[in-house]
Protein backbone atom coordinates (compact mmCIF):
# COMPACT_ATOMS: atom_id res chain seq x y z
CA UNK A 1 0.00 0.00 0.00
CA UNK A 2 1.36 3.36 -1.06
CA UNK A 3 0.16 6.88 -1.75
CA UNK A 4 1.25 7.81 -5.26
CA UNK A 5 0.80 10.50 -7.87
CA UNK A 6 -0.22 8.66 -11.02
CA UNK A 7 -0.09 10.39 -14.37
CA UNK A 8 -3.25 10.38 -16.47
CA UNK A 9 -2.36 8.95 -19.88
CA UNK A 10 -5.86 9.29 -21.28
CA UNK A 11 -9.42 9.87 -20.08
CA UNK A 12 -12.01 9.11 -22.73
CA UNK A 13 -15.75 8.85 -22.89
CA UNK A 14 -16.69 5.35 -24.07
CA UNK A 15 -20.49 5.61 -23.77
CA UNK A 16 -22.91 8.36 -22.68
CA UNK A 17 -22.19 8.06 -18.93
CA UNK A 18 -19.02 5.98 -18.99
CA UNK A 19 -15.35 6.94 -19.08
CA UNK A 20 -12.15 4.98 -19.34
CA UNK A 21 -9.07 6.42 -17.71
CA UNK A 22 -5.56 5.11 -18.29
CA UNK A 23 -3.06 5.84 -15.53
CA UNK A 24 0.70 5.44 -15.43
CA UNK A 25 2.26 4.30 -12.20
CA UNK A 26 4.86 1.56 -12.08
CA UNK A 27 4.19 0.55 -8.48
CA UNK A 28 0.41 0.22 -8.86
CA UNK A 29 0.67 -1.51 -12.24
CA UNK A 30 3.04 -4.04 -10.68
CA UNK A 31 1.08 -4.64 -7.52
CA UNK A 32 -2.65 -4.29 -8.25
CA UNK A 33 -4.54 -7.58 -8.41
CA UNK A 34 -7.99 -8.12 -9.91
CA UNK A 35 -10.66 -7.51 -7.25
CA UNK A 36 -8.50 -5.12 -5.26
CA UNK A 37 -9.20 -1.39 -5.41
CA UNK A 38 -7.64 2.05 -5.18
CA UNK A 39 -8.80 5.19 -3.35
CA UNK A 40 -8.71 8.19 -5.66
CA UNK A 41 -8.71 11.83 -4.63
CA UNK A 42 -11.03 13.28 -7.26
CA UNK A 43 -10.52 16.97 -6.38
CA UNK A 44 -7.93 19.00 -4.51
CA UNK A 45 -10.48 20.98 -2.55
CA UNK A 46 -13.08 19.92 -0.02
CA UNK A 47 -15.94 19.21 -2.43
CA UNK A 48 -15.93 16.32 -2.99
CA UNK A 49 -13.95 15.78 0.18
CA UNK A 50 -13.40 12.06 0.57
CA UNK A 51 -11.52 9.75 -1.75
CA UNK A 52 -13.56 7.39 -3.90
CA UNK A 53 -12.92 3.67 -4.43
CA UNK A 54 -12.45 2.20 -7.92
CA UNK A 55 -11.39 -1.23 -9.06
CA UNK A 56 -8.73 -1.71 -11.74
CA UNK A 57 -10.37 -2.49 -15.09
CA UNK A 58 -7.24 -3.58 -16.96
CA UNK A 59 -3.70 -3.98 -15.65
CA UNK A 60 -0.68 -3.81 -17.97
CA UNK A 61 2.21 -4.56 -15.62
CA UNK A 62 4.81 -4.65 -18.40
CA UNK A 63 3.89 -1.14 -19.55
CA UNK A 64 3.49 0.28 -16.04
CA UNK A 65 -0.07 1.39 -16.71
CA UNK A 66 -3.58 0.40 -15.67
CA UNK A 67 -7.11 1.47 -16.52
CA UNK A 68 -10.29 2.36 -14.66
CA UNK A 69 -13.70 2.20 -16.27
CA UNK A 70 -16.14 4.40 -14.41
CA UNK A 71 -19.70 5.64 -14.51
CA UNK A 72 -20.48 9.29 -13.85
CA UNK A 73 -23.00 9.20 -11.01
CA UNK A 74 -22.21 12.16 -8.76
CA UNK A 75 -19.81 14.90 -7.78
CA UNK A 76 -16.59 12.90 -7.57
CA UNK A 77 -17.07 10.97 -10.79
CA UNK A 78 -18.07 14.19 -12.58
CA UNK A 79 -14.85 15.82 -11.37
CA UNK A 80 -12.93 12.76 -12.56
CA UNK A 81 -14.51 12.94 -16.02
CA UNK A 82 -13.18 16.52 -16.39
CA UNK A 83 -9.56 15.51 -15.81
CA UNK A 84 -7.19 15.78 -18.75
CA UNK A 85 -4.33 13.65 -19.99
CA UNK A 86 -1.07 14.83 -18.42
CA UNK A 87 -2.64 15.75 -15.07
CA UNK A 88 -1.78 13.73 -11.97
CA UNK A 89 -4.09 11.87 -9.62
CA UNK A 90 -3.41 11.27 -5.92
CA UNK A 91 -4.10 7.56 -5.37
CA UNK A 92 -3.77 5.15 -2.44
CA UNK A 93 -3.47 1.48 -3.28
CA UNK A 94 -3.54 -1.40 -3.74
CA UNK A 95 -6.26 -1.89 -1.12
CA UNK A 96 -8.26 -4.92 0.00
CA UNK A 97 -8.04 -8.51 -1.09
CA UNK A 98 -8.46 -9.62 -4.67
CA UNK A 99 -10.19 -12.62 -6.18
CA UNK A 100 -9.01 -16.16 -5.64
CA UNK A 101 -8.41 -17.68 -9.07
CA UNK A 102 -10.32 -20.77 -10.16
CA UNK A 103 -10.03 -22.85 -13.32
CA UNK A 104 -13.63 -22.89 -14.49
CA UNK A 105 -15.31 -19.55 -14.16
CA UNK A 106 -18.57 -17.79 -14.86
CA UNK A 107 -18.30 -14.03 -14.68
CA UNK A 108 -21.48 -12.05 -13.98
CA UNK A 109 -21.44 -8.28 -14.23
CA UNK A 110 -24.37 -5.91 -13.77
CA UNK A 111 -24.00 -2.36 -15.09
CA UNK A 112 -20.67 -0.79 -14.16
CA UNK A 113 -20.02 -3.90 -12.02
CA UNK A 114 -18.52 -5.56 -15.09
CA UNK A 115 -15.60 -3.08 -15.09
CA UNK A 116 -13.33 -4.74 -12.49
CA UNK A 117 -14.19 -8.22 -13.78
CA UNK A 118 -12.33 -7.70 -17.06
CA UNK A 119 -9.06 -7.49 -15.12
CA UNK A 120 -9.94 -10.88 -13.63
CA UNK A 121 -10.72 -12.44 -17.01
CA UNK A 122 -7.50 -11.10 -18.51
CA UNK A 123 -5.53 -12.52 -15.61
CA UNK A 124 -7.22 -15.91 -16.01
CA UNK A 125 -6.63 -15.67 -19.77
CA UNK A 126 -3.96 -18.05 -20.97
CA UNK A 127 -4.72 -21.59 -22.15
CA UNK A 128 -8.26 -22.30 -21.05
CA UNK A 129 -9.77 -19.33 -22.87
CA UNK A 130 -12.82 -21.02 -24.29
CA UNK A 131 -13.88 -22.29 -20.84
CA UNK A 132 -14.74 -18.80 -19.63
CA UNK A 133 -18.40 -17.86 -19.62
CA UNK A 134 -19.51 -14.28 -19.13
CA UNK A 135 -22.92 -12.76 -18.48
CA UNK A 136 -23.16 -9.01 -18.95
CA UNK A 137 -26.34 -7.23 -17.94
CA UNK A 138 -27.65 -3.70 -17.78
CA UNK A 139 -30.88 -1.74 -17.90
CA UNK A 140 -30.46 -0.84 -21.54
CA UNK A 141 -28.18 -1.16 -24.59
CA UNK A 142 -26.05 1.94 -23.86
CA UNK A 143 -24.98 0.54 -20.50
CA UNK A 144 -23.66 -2.77 -21.86
CA UNK A 145 -19.90 -2.57 -21.44
CA UNK A 146 -16.85 -4.68 -22.33
CA UNK A 147 -18.65 -7.20 -24.57
CA UNK A 148 -15.89 -7.04 -27.20
CA UNK A 149 -13.10 -7.24 -24.62
CA UNK A 150 -14.39 -10.51 -23.21
CA UNK A 151 -15.01 -11.92 -26.70
CA UNK A 152 -11.43 -11.09 -27.62
CA UNK A 153 -10.35 -13.35 -24.77
CA UNK A 154 -12.32 -16.17 -26.34
CA UNK A 155 -15.03 -16.12 -23.69
CA UNK A 156 -18.60 -17.17 -24.38
CA UNK A 157 -20.55 -13.96 -23.73
CA UNK A 158 -24.27 -13.65 -23.00
CA UNK A 159 -25.78 -10.15 -22.96
CA UNK A 160 -28.97 -9.36 -21.06
CA UNK A 161 -30.89 -6.09 -20.93
CA UNK A 162 -33.83 -5.27 -18.68
CA UNK A 163 -35.68 -3.63 -21.58
CA UNK A 164 -34.61 -6.06 -24.29
CA UNK A 165 -32.97 -3.29 -26.35
CA UNK A 166 -29.90 -5.49 -26.86
CA UNK A 167 -29.03 -9.15 -26.31
CA UNK A 168 -31.76 -11.07 -24.52
CA UNK A 169 -34.48 -9.44 -22.44
CA UNK A 170 -34.16 -10.32 -18.79
CA UNK A 171 -31.79 -10.29 -15.84
CA UNK A 172 -28.23 -11.61 -15.63
CA UNK A 173 -29.51 -14.15 -13.13
CA UNK A 174 -31.90 -15.61 -15.73
CA UNK A 175 -28.88 -16.38 -17.91
CA UNK A 176 -26.82 -17.56 -14.97
CA UNK A 177 -29.54 -20.04 -13.97
CA UNK A 178 -29.47 -21.63 -17.43
CA UNK A 179 -25.68 -21.96 -17.27
CA UNK A 180 -25.89 -23.58 -13.85
CA UNK A 181 -28.39 -26.15 -15.07
CA UNK A 182 -25.72 -27.82 -17.25
CA UNK A 183 -24.01 -31.04 -16.05
CA UNK A 184 -20.91 -30.65 -13.85
CA UNK A 185 -21.78 -27.04 -13.12
CA UNK A 186 -20.74 -27.62 -9.50
CA UNK A 187 -17.12 -27.48 -10.70
CA UNK A 188 -17.60 -23.82 -11.63
CA UNK A 189 -16.83 -20.70 -9.65
CA UNK A 190 -19.03 -17.64 -10.08
CA UNK A 191 -17.43 -14.17 -9.92
CA UNK A 192 -19.97 -11.38 -9.66
CA UNK A 193 -20.19 -7.62 -9.24
CA UNK A 194 -23.20 -5.38 -9.69
CA UNK A 195 -26.21 -3.88 -7.95
CA UNK A 196 -27.02 -5.29 -4.54
CA UNK A 197 -30.22 -7.08 -5.62
CA UNK A 198 -28.33 -8.81 -8.42
CA UNK A 199 -25.57 -9.93 -6.07
CA UNK A 200 -28.09 -11.32 -3.61
CA UNK A 201 -29.87 -13.23 -6.40
CA UNK A 202 -26.51 -14.58 -7.63
CA UNK A 203 -25.64 -15.67 -4.09
CA UNK A 204 -28.96 -17.52 -3.81
CA UNK A 205 -28.40 -19.30 -7.12
CA UNK A 206 -24.89 -20.32 -6.12
CA UNK A 207 -26.31 -21.86 -2.96
CA UNK A 208 -29.11 -23.64 -4.82
CA UNK A 209 -26.68 -25.16 -7.32
CA UNK A 210 -23.82 -25.78 -4.84
CA UNK A 211 -21.43 -23.61 -6.80
CA UNK A 212 -18.62 -21.56 -5.28
CA UNK A 213 -19.19 -17.84 -5.63
CA UNK A 214 -17.03 -14.77 -5.02
CA UNK A 215 -18.72 -11.38 -4.83
CA UNK A 216 -17.04 -8.01 -5.22
CA UNK A 217 -19.05 -5.83 -2.82
CA UNK A 218 -19.42 -2.06 -2.80
CA UNK A 219 -20.01 0.15 0.22
CA UNK A 220 -19.52 3.83 0.92
CA UNK A 221 -15.97 4.31 2.12
CA UNK A 222 -13.95 6.95 3.92
CA UNK A 223 -10.52 5.58 4.85
CA UNK A 224 -10.38 2.48 2.63
CA UNK A 225 -7.94 0.75 4.99
CA UNK A 226 -10.05 -0.44 7.96
CA UNK A 227 -9.59 2.51 10.30
CA UNK A 228 -12.97 4.27 10.27
CA UNK A 229 -15.26 1.20 10.46
CA UNK A 230 -17.53 2.93 7.98
CA UNK A 231 -18.02 0.20 5.36
CA UNK A 232 -19.52 -2.83 7.14
CA UNK A 233 -21.09 -5.90 5.64
CA UNK A 234 -22.87 -8.44 7.80
CA UNK A 235 -21.36 -11.92 7.59
CA UNK A 236 -21.87 -15.23 9.36
CA UNK A 237 -19.45 -15.67 12.23
CA UNK A 238 -20.47 -19.22 13.05
CA UNK A 239 -23.67 -21.25 12.93
CA UNK A 240 -25.62 -18.84 15.13
CA UNK A 241 -23.90 -15.50 15.23
CA UNK A 242 -23.39 -12.70 12.74
CA UNK A 243 -20.72 -10.03 12.75
CA UNK A 244 -19.69 -7.01 10.72
CA UNK A 245 -16.65 -7.18 8.49
CA UNK A 246 -15.23 -4.18 6.64
CA UNK A 247 -15.63 -4.22 2.87
CA UNK A 248 -12.38 -2.28 2.42
CA UNK A 249 -10.11 -4.37 4.62
CA UNK A 250 -11.71 -7.81 4.86
CA UNK A 251 -13.06 -7.62 1.27
CA UNK A 252 -14.06 -6.21 -1.12
CA UNK A 253 -14.22 -9.82 -2.37
CA UNK A 254 -16.29 -12.14 -0.15
CA UNK A 255 -17.47 -15.73 -0.46
CA UNK A 256 -21.17 -15.41 -1.19
CA UNK A 257 -22.10 -18.03 1.43
CA UNK A 258 -20.73 -15.82 4.23
CA UNK A 259 -22.90 -12.80 3.48
CA UNK A 260 -26.04 -12.14 5.52
CA UNK A 261 -28.43 -10.26 3.21
Amino acid sequence: MKQVKAKIVSNEQVAPRYYKMRLADRYLADNLKPGQFIEVRCSDGSDPLLRRPFGPHRIFSAKGVFEMLYEVVGRATTALSNKKAGEELDIIGPLGNGFTMAKHAIIVGGGIGIAPLLALAEKMGGGKKSALQVVIGARTKEAILCEKDFKRLGAKVIVMTDDGSYGKKGFTTDALKTLLQTPNSQLLTIYACGPRQMMQAVAELSKEYHVKCQLLLEEYMACGVGVCLGCPVKVRKDLVDHEYKMVCKDGPVFDAERIVW
Binding site: L49, Y220, M221, A222, C228, G230, P232, Y244
Partner: peptide, 18 residues
Protein backbone atom coordinates in the same frame (compact mmCIF):
# COMPACT_ATOMS: atom_id res chain seq x y z
CA UNK B 1 -21.98 -0.84 15.94
CA UNK B 2 -24.79 0.54 13.78
CA UNK B 3 -26.34 -0.85 10.63
CA UNK B 4 -25.04 0.40 7.28
CA UNK B 5 -24.81 2.77 5.53
CA UNK B 6 -22.63 4.34 8.19
CA UNK B 7 -21.12 7.13 6.10
CA UNK B 8 -22.30 9.80 3.76
CA UNK B 9 -20.49 12.76 2.34
CA UNK B 10 -22.07 16.21 2.81
CA UNK B 11 -20.91 19.59 1.48
CA UNK B 12 -17.29 19.92 2.72
CA UNK B 13 -17.90 17.32 5.37
CA UNK B 14 -19.16 13.88 6.21
CA UNK B 15 -21.70 12.25 8.47
CA UNK B 16 -20.87 9.07 10.32
CA UNK B 17 -22.93 6.75 12.46
CA UNK B 18 -20.37 4.09 13.32
Amino acid sequence: GNRPPRLVETPSGMLNSI
